[in-house]
Design a protein around this nucleic acid. Sequence first.
DNA 1: CTCCGTAGCGTTTTT
DNA 2: CGCTACGGAG
Length: 732
Amino acid sequence: MNTHPILQFLNEAQCQAVSSDAPALLVLAGAGSGKTRVLVHRIAWLISECGLSPHSILAVTFTNKAAHEMRSRIESLLGRPANTMWVGTFHGLAHRLLRAHARDAELDENFQILDSDDQLRIVKRVVRELGLDENEWQPKQAQWFINAKKDDGLRPKDIQHGGDLFTATMTSIYSHYEQACRQSSLVDFPELLLRAYELLRDNTHLREHYQSRFHHVLVDEFQDTNAIQYNWIKLISGRQNAITIVGDDDQSIYGWRGARIENIHKFQHDNIDCETIRLEQNYRSTSTILKAANAVIANNNDRLGKNLWTSGDQGELISLYAAFNEQEEARFIAARIQDFVNQGNNYSECAILYRSNAQSRVLEEALLQRSIPYRIYGGLRFFERAEIKDTLAYCRLITNSNDDAAFERVINTPTRGLGQKSIEIVRDLARSRQLSMWQAASVVIDEGLLPARAKNGLETFQMLIKNLASEAESMELHQLIDFVIEASGLLEMYLKEKGEKGLARKENLQELVSAAREFDADEFGYNLEDLGEAEVEEEIDPLVAFLSHASLEAGDTQAEKYEDSVQLMTLHSAKGLEFPVVFMTGMEEKLFPHQMSMEDSDDLAEERRLCYVGITRAMKKLYLLHAEKRRLWGKETYPSISRFIREIPKSLIEEVRLNASVSQPAFGRSQLQDSDSGPDGLQLGQMVEHPKFGAGVILNFEGSGPQATIQINFESVGPKRLVLAYAKLTPC
DNA sequence: CTCCGTAGCGTTTTT
DNA sequence: CGCTACGGAG
């Protein structure tokens, strides 16, 4: 037994992972197996035991939350700050590199970051400018295309369209979009990564500098990395440095966003000396819950393989409840939560998970009816609010008047007599003379291309921005923001809004001012004190830093954290969290697995991983719910039970009835029936096809002999009772 | 420019 | 069903 303080209280596999001296280490960390703990302890180990300087450590995560948590846990373990250690998100670190070496990356030193909203606006404009029909060539789709290509490290010139009209058109949009971004010194999220990659790839001096600096690179949630992230990691760590990657192939749920689960296999392949350690002991859930999770995920192929276990006890059976409809599903949950709380527990110990956001509405209503406090994850985040984005758009114009995205956003907000038509004139001129909107505006005024009223508006706008820019030089960041809010007329405009809305907006704007007051560029690593040979260009403007910060850390989704409340969220946002009691709702075919992911086997496997993630969120008690009837987009549907439920051993489930509960149920079976099997080898819960009614699930067998009937829940027409002898059923 | 009516559409989300 | 985005009327 190792008695080293850093290795204390770790199990054997964890100790091995923390103290491994392998140059390439892969830690396959199952849900709830102490993944973050291992990562944090390993870094502390490297510093205090292997004598590595924090300066030579690079740790990468996906979310800001994870990055902050990691740094503070390392520091508290070490008992001292480790400022020189690079800990951050892929995007945050890429941004840091680009700021420090803007010239080498061929970027304007005041470049700003586009969020997906701004990005879509620019794509839309490009599509329009190319004279393409927006219905045929949807900007959303083009945006998706561009991002997917960037995630794969492809520039327009790298794309072979081979005469394919779709690819050719999309590539052309991509190319023009790139041009527009360059014009305005704007960088979107995937561009941050791609640029940072190209920077190191094409600049030997810089690459060698960072390779000799970072002796150990650690990556969290490796299953979520995309192609460019993987290549960036490879580039920055070079051949001589150690890499630790931590991840769980079974929890890869972002394939649709470019994440490459294969990167884990690739890592093993690229590093012949790679050591693999599995963390399979789970400290979160009961063995019942783990068995269910293991059984479900076992249906996927190509896994690296892992079996979660616990030394804890069995705990309660998983409860399965078949509700009549979604309202009843919600009421059942609310009642259970109320019971749970009445027994002396907290609301915050309960989480309600769903596949898609639309499901939350009915759940909210049921909770509201019982006055159960709840908190919804997701939704608008602080820096995404319209009033905040408007204010920041003015600030961006102060920093860089050629920022077309910002220009378009506020040119007529608040209204100053500039309609669609006037803006179109500016836009056209900007395009034909290859100018930014701001530059084009001056030309339009000089050449008298606008009616008097619009011309006035445009001039007022220009004066305003120039005025703000000159004031900016003598003001503190927070004073400036405050001044912008006032002088732009935004505050006045919002206060005119009726109801609470205007006031809420005013409060948010005040919060923005305090955020600016507390903002410290150095603290967020925007100024780099120790780049050594690779020189830092001059000190970053605090406003530029604040704007980048706003884009990179959009802030929390609104919620009063201190209040004890039930947690509502999608299965995706539940990843990484845990709750004593978990309700998984809408366990129905076409909802979960989602209809759009049922055809393709890779998509289906990802849905299954999502289910695995959901199940493993539960610590003590798991409820699975499905409705026999569900209103979807105003239409009644009769969904069949999710295949994932059928993948859980029946011995782990008890079916909840309204007044009693029976263990070892068959799905939808009456309590009196004691066999799963009916005549003709048909089984309860089985999918069958009827020539007239289509597909359905067998609910029950009744009677015997020639009068025997079968009850089937059809997708098209709902539950029906048929005489078995005449029903021409084919199993499917 | 603002307001209102309707056509169209409808996973998952962080940076 | 309920939201958004856009187009026409005032």
